Amino acid sequence: MLAVENIHTYYGNIQSLKGVSISVKEGEICTLIGSNGAGKTTLLRTIQGLLRPREGRIFFNQKPIESLSTEQIVNLGISQSPEGRLIFPKMSVLENLEMGAFSRRDRLNIKSDIEKILTLFPRLRERITQKAGTMSGGEQQMLAMGRALMARPKLLLLDEPSMGLAPILVNQIFDIIQDINQEGMTILLVEQNARKALKIAKTGYVLQTGKVVKSGSAKELQSDPEVRRIYLGEE
């Protein structure tokens, strides 16, 4: 579904991605793991069209997208729940979900899609008229994911969905990610919690200072001695 080929992305004169190549198959969860500053968020932002690569190609369902606008990429079927959630704090839960469907033309189906999101995230139903900025971190994360799903994506990019959450909420978020995937959604997951990410993923990549240093099935990465030592905290 997604093929990233030899991508080089810069912030000004500082190179963040140095020839990154990854692929994501339809229907799978693929995870990107790595330390802070490895380039994981930069890669998602480049795929989404928020950053322009200086070199390389990005293909979505065999179509090149590296020169398209973010809106065009969303309309093709790629949506992101960003790092830090970035919900609209002064808008209600309902208004945030409606914003997720901003670029859609099938206005008649939006109401039924909101109902699906509220079924997936029952906590949001309880908060439907509440201002998003007054909710807990876990509730805001659910809202960010729900807002991304309102675009009806074929590929969902999740950037650090467990960041700053209590362990019980982390488990809940990962259960929901698996539920979304089992309904057919392809997911590219960036996650600091490498143990949990590799547990639910089919494939994975390890990014280190802007380069892919390891890749393979999630099981292969889980059993790799270096991954176990650096990212899973095991001797």
Results as ranks from 00 to 15, higher is better:
2 L>K: 02
3 A>G: 03
4 V>W: 09
8 H>M: 02
12 G>Y: 06
15 Q>L: 01
20 V>W: 09
20 V>T: 06
20 V>R: 01
21 S>Q: 06
25 K>I: 01
25 K>W: 02
25 K>T: 04
29 I>L: 03
35 S>Q: 11
37 G>V: 04
38 A>P: 10
40 K>Q: 07
41 T>N: 09
43 L>K: 09
45 R>W: 02
46 T>C: 01
49 G>E: 00
49 G>L: 02
49 G>D: 00
50 L>S: 01
50 L>W: 01
55 E>F: 07
56 G>M: 03
56 G>W: 07
59 F>G: 00
60 F>C: 02
60 F>P: 08
65 I>L: 06
67 S>F: 12
68 L>R: 13
72 Q>N: 13
77 G>H: 11
78 I>L: 11
78 I>R: 06
80 Q>D: 06
83 E>A: 05
83 E>W: 00
85 R>L: 10
94 L>A: 15
94 L>Q: 14
96 N>K: 02
98 E>D: 05
99 M>F: 09
105 R>K: 14
106 D>C: 03
108 L>M: 01
111 K>Y: 10
113 D>L: 02
114 I>Y: 08
115 E>I: 13
116 K>E: 15
120 L>F: 00
121 F>A: 06
123 R>N: 15
123 R>C: 14
123 R>M: 14
124 L>W: 08
124 L>M: 08
125 R>G: 15
125 R>Q: 11
126 E>P: 13
126 E>H: 08
127 R>I: 01
135 M>G: 13
137 G>F: 00
138 G>H: 02
142 M>I: 00
142 M>E: 01
143 L>E: 10
144 A>E: 06
145 M>S: 00
146 G>Y: 00
153 P>D: 08
156 L>P: 05
157 L>E: 05
157 L>F: 04
157 L>I: 04
159 D>Y: 03
161 P>R: 05
162 S>N: 14
162 S>T: 13
163 M>T: 11
165 L>F: 07
169 L>T: 14
169 L>S: 12
173 I>Q: 12
173 I>C: 07
181 N>T: 06
181 N>S: 09
187 I>C: 01
191 E>L: 05
192 Q>H: 04
192 Q>C: 12
195 R>F: 09
195 R>G: 05
195 R>N: 13
203 T>F: 12
203 T>L: 11
205 Y>P: 14
206 V>Q: 13
207 L>K: 09
208 Q>R: 14
208 Q>H: 13
210 G>M: 03
211 K>F: 08
212 V>R: 13
212 V>F: 12
213 V>E: 10
218 A>Q: 10
218 A>H: 12
219 K>T: 14
220 E>L: 07
228 R>H: 10
228 R>Y: 02
229 R>D: 12
229 R>V: 05
230 I>V: 15
231 Y>H: 08
232 L>S: 13
